[in-house]
């Protein structure tokens, strides 16, 4: 594999990692602060993509669609929280898993009913049609670079928010010891709602960004959700920093594995079985890495101390 190709794969991996981080950030905060496991978080990602694509087509501008998808995602998130999720905070994880699974089934079928089962056409982002020559002889789609940049900016903003503001301090404290925060006289429910809304919006943002790159189709949230789970488990539940590191790690491992494993295996077996085994192994790779990390450190790379 040439150096150019490797660089392209590294960028692809970083891009997947950034999108995963945007989804995982909400998931890990919601779990960390509220002890709430939300399978329906992938739905936010999917809806973000659908809303952005639809509004973008309607208004003739991808960017307008993206911009409007943010408040819509926020509203949908708050609505789901209000109708379903808040009744589950005091229930066990089993009830949470099942009810949010029910939300997935409902929303995915609703999406099928509204938009149909086939992938949706997505307007291309104006101004980012071409590629940028990042090295002599190597051009990379500029929109994908924009995704990476946008994701890094959001990550930075989130880190400042969580690390430097009072609300962020409460969120961190809440992830460690929710009863204590509530004993301080903070309205923990307001804090929950805030965290939830931000998480939903981030996932919607990720979906909207992913639209022009990946297929916008009803099941698109599931794969991302499960990878996001892998991310927060590896990173340590409740840790934003862990989610970021793990997301990039998972993005890189997944992308590089798919690109390189078949070639590597060709060194030891014939081409067709190398292709097949390589593909199988590549899709399992992140799970194998997760299992290995958990085997060594059951609480993940950046365990949040609970007290």
């Amino acid at each position: 594999m040439s150096l150019n190709l490797l660089l392209v794969q590294l960028l692809n991996g970083a891009q997947l990692g950034i999108l995963l981080f945007l989804v995982a950030a909400g998931l890990t905060l919601v779990f960390g602060v509220m002890d709430f496991i939300n399978l329906a978080h992938g739905v936010q990602y999917m809806l973000g993509a659908y809303v952005a694509a639809t509004l973008g087509t309607l208004l003739g501008s991808f960017w307008l669609g993206l911009l409007l998808a943010l408040p819509v995602s926020l509203l949908i998130g708050l609505l789901l929280e209000w109708v379903v999720f808040r009744h589950l905070y005091r229930r066990d994880h089993l009830a949470q898993v099942l009810a949010t699974f029910g939300v997935i089934l409902t929303v995915e079928d609703a999406v099928r009913a509204i938009w149909g089962s086939s992938p949706l056409a997505v307007p291309q982002p104006e101004g980012f049609a071409g590629g940028i020559e990042i090295m002599p002889g190597l051009t990379y789609p500029s929109f994908r670079l924009a995704i990476i940049a946008a994701g890094l900016l959001v990550a930075l903003g989130l880190w400042l928010l969580v690390d430097r503001t009072r609300a962020g301090m409460l969120v961190r404290a809440g992830a460690t010891n929710a009863p204590m925060v509530s004993a301080l006289g903070v309205d923990i429910h307001k804090l929950f709602t805030l965290v939830f809304g931000i998480g939903a919006m981030l996932a919607g943002f990720a979906g909207a960004l992913a639209g022009p790159v990946f297929a916008v189709a009803p099941g698109m949230g599931d794969g991302v959700l499960i990878l996001a789970f892998v991310v927060i488990v590896i990173g340590g539940i409740g840790s934003i920093r862990g989610a970021f590191v793990a997301a990039i790690l998972v993005g890189l491992i997944d992308t590089l594995g798919r690109a390189m494993l078949p070639d590597l295996l060709r060194l030891v077996m014939d081409a067709s079985s190398a292709r097949q085994t390589g593909a199988a192994l590549a899709s399992m790779l992140v799970y194998i890495v997760m299992a290995a990390i958990l085997f060594l450190s059951p609480a993940g790379l950046f365990p949040v101390r609970r007290g």
Binding site: H93, V97, I226, F229, A279, S283, M284, L294, F295, P298
Partner: peptide
């Protein structure tokens, strides 16, 4: 591997192993 963890970690790990089997079957 999974039983080294508990609670929500266990849920997610079993899910992940399930996906592993799924992708293996697909390939």
């Amino acid at each position: 591997v999974s039983l080294r963890t508990s609670g929500v970690h266990f849920i997610m790990i079993t899910l992940a192993f399930g996906q592993m089997a799924f992708f293996t079957a697909s390939s």
